[in-house]
Design a binder for these strands. Structure first.
Lengths: 215, 215, 215, 215
DNA sequence: AATGAATGAGACTTCATTCAT
DNA sequence: CATGAATGAAGTCTCATTCAT
């Protein structure tokens, strides 16, 4: 489950060896994340990133062979951060509401630094990887995490249906957080508690209710 | 609540008078929707639209004074379509599951023609209107619709809390549909029924459960 | 000297035969003059002219095969008007100051309808004719007119030097009127009287003063 | 009078730091002046300028954010040159004819490099500055210079009338030089001496002649 | 004859990328 | 290594002109 993601080659022209280089790369990645978050993929230009990072465009291209490799690096780091956050909220032992609460809070926290970044990285920006393929390391760990929680709370062996439930939960949380961010309501406590309720109710339901049959 | 959405003129440079030109405008709008859906805002170029529409770039600019006015026209049409779809699923009288079912099916249908269009229009593409301002005619009718359903099923007078519930429902559905579309799973019946369950459970819950207190 | 200018074919695709056609051509020419005057050559587009004239672009092209022929027609008419105005101020018999006064007033009047037109036609707009060649019918009559006045007032036979004097007078008047127009001072009476003084002093001077030797 | 003209930054996107780029800017400005002079505002395209300068279009836009800023830079330089030329011909102490002679020669010299440039910059090309406003630094110094000469030669205190006389002189010289340039007669010595005579006679005249009363 | 829809060359401008210093 | 000058393909938009109706 906690498979370390990102075994693939870090797509960098030259691995930074000295401290100064590492700092430069760091600055570039942060500048890139900020611009991606603030201006979206369409406003993300290599020159703007270099400017904001305070390095020359030439330096940027020493570490990232092209624009795609830069955005890939930013995404890789962001997805790693997301997984790290998630791993901290373990389901086992907790009552569902508490689990969901800690999870939602963690997710909201992760979105608060660069509010637009997640969506831009996942929806707008192109990628050389197939990070969003259902079989990618990221998706496997990400959905697997939810599927496991479903299995625990529904009290049965993990199964194929749990995958769908995981999808529903993950995507509903994503939708609410992303739209709340757009509306500037991410900090609103009612939004947070209602989101928690939405997910908890779903998670607590045995899944054998009359609803399925109604279909 | 059912405020008629603002019927502002799609800002066209020239209103088409002959049948031929009305057809041209139609073709351009459809080509634009397809490209927006398939390639996102960054891949949406006026030349590509004209090409796909099979008209010259000059013709496009006869009807739309600039790129923004074209995307505005596409958006206006799309949002109108969304509202029209929604208005067909009336809550009153139906058991919640049936209401949610018809609603979700309608929404999925609306997203199936141009799967990426909705998100691109709402998240990526810039706009001259403030269509996504919480006070815009679109948002008012859209969220008002959900708020009304919440009030009906929770069996009380409409209130401020219902607004938040409406937000949660609308954004959760949005998140699930949009991510399912990206994964190519929009047609998957399990996804559909689970989404319906997620929303129905939330809608049926009185809102006075222990969840809020747990927070 | 008063050779009728414009023997060359009016560059029109089709000579207007009916009253309606003549009216259309007239409207187009006036619309063209106004736009040329107000917006200069760079702002002069055939579509704008057609719009202002209230005819379709197709109709415009029925009378004028291309943009150049339209501007040529406008220029031809304008230069004819200028010559007509000039012919009214005859030098013979009048004291120089009175002659210059009537001439300057006539010139200012001619520039007051479309203040920018003259300069645009002579300086900016391209031409198929060589109307500004020193041997063109227009230049011959225009400068000849001034040369004749010089000969009269300097009281000798017309000669080559008079041509230069004519040039000086015509171009000085042109410069003062055109710049006054740009500054919005065409109506200023002091400007008018000083211009008259400038020209009169020059015209009254025998031409044998010490000035030439000083050079 | 000798108010230093506004030294506003030529609005450049990027100040050239290396010697190479300073040379590039210089080349671009000269190419621009030539094209403006030869082909007028309508023929002045950024691509033509870049071509003639022997640089890529991208280089041009590194230094000038748009077409207007390029023409503004060319104009600023040209007007500065004009003022510099003028400042060299001081009126005091010289007999009028000598003063006018040196002035006219200087002006002709200034127009001889790019004969059409002055007119195009002042009449055709649009501008972001209000350089031609009567209160602009340029106009104030330019006309003030002539007004001062008028006051000296007419032997009285500077006054409001001198402003008009300055206008007349400046605009008459402008008209003669500009039209002579168009006719290719700028080098003609008779034209030069006659222009000098026109201005000298006007400048020497006390201004109390019978002419004003004749009006 | 008149209309106005359609065309496309060409103008302005951006931005990813390379390379001399 | 770092810099930033230079490049040019590609995108937005205009406008003279043609042609079907």
């Amino acid at each position: 489950m906690s498979t370390r993601i990102a075994k693939q080659q870090p797509v960098m022209r030259k691995r930074p060896r000295q401290a100064r280089s590492r700092a430069t790369v760091e600055t570039i990645l942060q500048a890139g994340a900020r611009i991606l978050s603030d201006e979206g993929w369409a406003g993300f230009t290599t020159n703007k990133v270099a400017d904001l990072a305070g390095v020359s465009i030439g330096s940027l291209y020493q570490y990232f062979p092209d624009k795609l490799s830069l955005v890939d690096a930013i995404r890789q780091r962001h997805l790693d951060d997301c997984l790290a956050v998630m791993r901290k909220s373990k389901a086992k032992g907790l009552p569902p509401v508490q689990f969901v609460t800690s999870l939602v809070h963690a997710m909201i926290a992760a979105h608060s630094i660069y509010p637009g970044l997640h969506r831009v990285l996942l929806d707008e920006a192109p990628s050389s990887d197939d990070y969003r393929n259902p079989n990618s390391a990221f998706e496997i760990e990400y959905l697997g995490y939810y599927a496991k929680a479903v299995a625990i709370y529904r009290n049965h062996q993990p199964g194929r249906t749990d995958q769908t439930a995981a999808l529903i939960i993950s995507d509903a949380i994503d939708g609410v957080i992303h739209n709340a961010a757009r509306r500037g309501m991410l900090g609103n406590p009612t939004v947070q508690s209602e989101l928690i309720r939405l997910v908890s109710l779903y998670l607590e339901d045995a899944g054998d209710s009359a609803i399925a049959q109604a279909e």
